[in-house]
Design a protein around this nucleic acid. Structure first.
Lengths: 341, 341
DNA sequence: CGCTTCACTGAAACCGGTTTCAAAGCAACG
DNA sequence: CGTTGCTTTGAAACCGGTTTCAGTGAAGCG
């Protein structure tokens, strides 16, 4: 009837106590909890089971990991935990982890190079079995040396000179879908709004795909703008400049969509009568802004699960060369790209 | 020039190898990395430092935790990682953790009772030093028995019969601020929109404070509505029903604000000319909807840091009775509560 | 010079598990 | 009845660290 003593903070039941209570050796208890139950006589297993139940014994995963080399811990390095995309992917990863008996250690680098390094060291010291990385990818050296030690899957962003699996979006296809849609709706003068190009591969790919596609489509004219200090003025300039036809913005991700919409409002634009908008990522508030923001949704949950499952295969010994998973974005049409003239 | 062998997956440099390389004993190396450096002769320390550098040695945190009892790991149980409030708090916690050399294991229960239980077991088995809990709080028993073993801080939500520190919002004050503001702006007929009352203490407190305050203010009339299946009809009914004056919604949190705004739009409301809106939590898209949504911002970062620091004090041996930290919400006025009447 | 003190170091026990290895008990076999 | 072989078990080594404790040599002291 009496639970564990409240003052006994940190002192847990150990395998030795269970062994003693059951009148067997540590080894037998270890075999019981380790799944080698068929090695034990039924009577012995029963006694151990009862002792475990009675003492409410839970094996110490850290101690198990020490000898066994399996901590059942996965590390995830996230560039910006306040970015909804990252969280959505992380949610997918976490779900997959739990389903396979793994736990997730999440490290947020806050887009800081120094924190990235610090977190990598920490994750290594915790003996995580594998790593899911969505980050700046400076520290290519550290990442490489870590990748030599354990499996690693990149999410959304390549890291230069790192031969690892990659799970992300088919950016080229997404950009094409966006331009197809805008063009079909009658928009002609486009502006790609991206967060600053800091080397993040997905951002760069979207920009490259955009300029490439624009060059290939005689009907369209397009330029690229980065959010930041000069963004407002440049945007204003775009709005008033003469062009080949109706104007539209293409936000390269959710944060850019937020920044773009905010600036449009502050510049006194009526959303979205004067100017169209399409955004990569589909955030839950897009339907609420003006007549709704047209989006290219990323299958974030699927990206997360795939990243984990990819990691799992590596953990099970898969030695294939690095693979790439490119998911397609899904167009969700709302009022911000209503047909134009 | 040659890094570690790529095939040597999982085999790291150990303290023994460093000891051998430096020509000293494990004990000395341990003292070196453990901060007992002043115990060592300068020459010895130098040799060890060089050996560590040369072999790129990183101590295994798990092994250290085993004997020392300090894993430098904090667990956080989150009810819903897709809820921006939770993420914002988590961000605060994570930052504080890193600054103090701790890492964070995040477990998302997805509002599932079963997952909560599963995660608690996992966190225990990983020897986390402390726990930050923001969750349903079913499993009061498991939480209690865990709280007997290690320090625990609740965030936002009380758990019945659990005597633990709590960090959250002063809900009564927040509700008063909201009603003061609405009243002063001329709104008279109010509707509190809450997510379903599932026992979450903060939700319940807001509802209770609301009805209490309404009863106390003769000018105001108010009722409570929960999001969910019947929400749309009930909302529509509220919109057309006669009342004592201008109507406004009070969203009890960010998710409720999202649901409410969405329904208002679908019901054809012009935001926010016909009806006012104030929301608890301040999400980054509030300025973009209609004329902007007035908000009561929670100091989420501060809540997160406080939760961690509170935990830290407990870890350092603080045995005070359970404390409560109630933060004040901050009113941020936007167009959704423009003056009426 | 003998004795104490102190700074420094290493051997060994320990943390809580897993795994190897050998041995004990028992049945089947020739 | 002596072997053989299988099942079941425990002692002990091990994982990678920390910590205790005893020992060494040199400096300080009477």
């Amino acid at each position: 009837m009496n639970g564990p003593s409240p003052s006994a903070r940190g002192s847990r039941v150990t395998i030795s106590e269970v062994a003693e209570a059951a009148g067997v050796s540590k080894a037998s208890v270890s075999r019981y909890i380790g799944g080698d139950r068929q090695l034990l006589a039924d009577a012995t297993a029963l006694r151990i089971g009862q002792a475990i139940e009675r003492l409410d014994y839970r094996p110490n995963q850290m101690a198990r990991g020490l000898k066994r080399g399996r901590t059942r811990l996965i590390g995830m390095l996230v560039a910006d935990i306040l970015n909804p995309y990252s969280v959505a992917v992380m949610h997918g990863v976490e779900t997959a982890c739990r389903q396979h008996g793994y736990s997730l250690v999440v490290c947020n680098t806050d887009r800081s190079t120094e924190q990235e390094s610090q977190h990598l060291a920490a994750l290594r010291s915790y003996n995580v079995e594998g790593l899911i990385v969505n980050t700046l990818g400076h520290h290519a050296g550290e990442l490489q040396s870590l990748h030599d030690e354990l499996p690693m899957v990149l999410v959304d962003r390549k890291v230069e000179a790192l031969e690892a699996d990659l799970v992300g979006l088919d950016n080229r296809d997404a950009v094409r879908q966006a331009l197809d849609h805008l063009q079909q709706r009658g928009y002609r003068d486009l502006l790609l709004v991206s967060e600053p190009l800091d080397g993040t591969s997905s951002r760069q790919e979207r920009v490259t795909a955009f300029t490439g596609e624009i060059a290939r489509r005689p009907l369209l004219q397009g330029q690229v703008l980065q959010t930041g200090e000069t963004f407002r003025e440049a945007l204003q300039h775009f709005l008033v400049a003469p062009g080949p036809g109706p104007k539209a913005l293409f936000a390269a991700n959710g944060m850019a969509a937020l920044a773009a919409t905010r600036q449009l409002r502050e510049l006194g634009c009526r959303l979205f009568e004067e100017i169209g908008l399409i955004a990569l990522d589909d955030l839950d508030w897009y339907p609420l802004v003006g007549s709704g923001i047209t989006a290219l949704a990323q299958p974030t949950a699927e990206i997360g699960t795939t990243a984990f499952e990819c990691l799992l295969e590596r953990l099970r010994g898969d030695r294939e060369p690095a693979r790439h998973f490119d998911f397609k974005a899904q167009l969700i049409i709302r009022g911000s790209t209503h047909p134009r003239g």
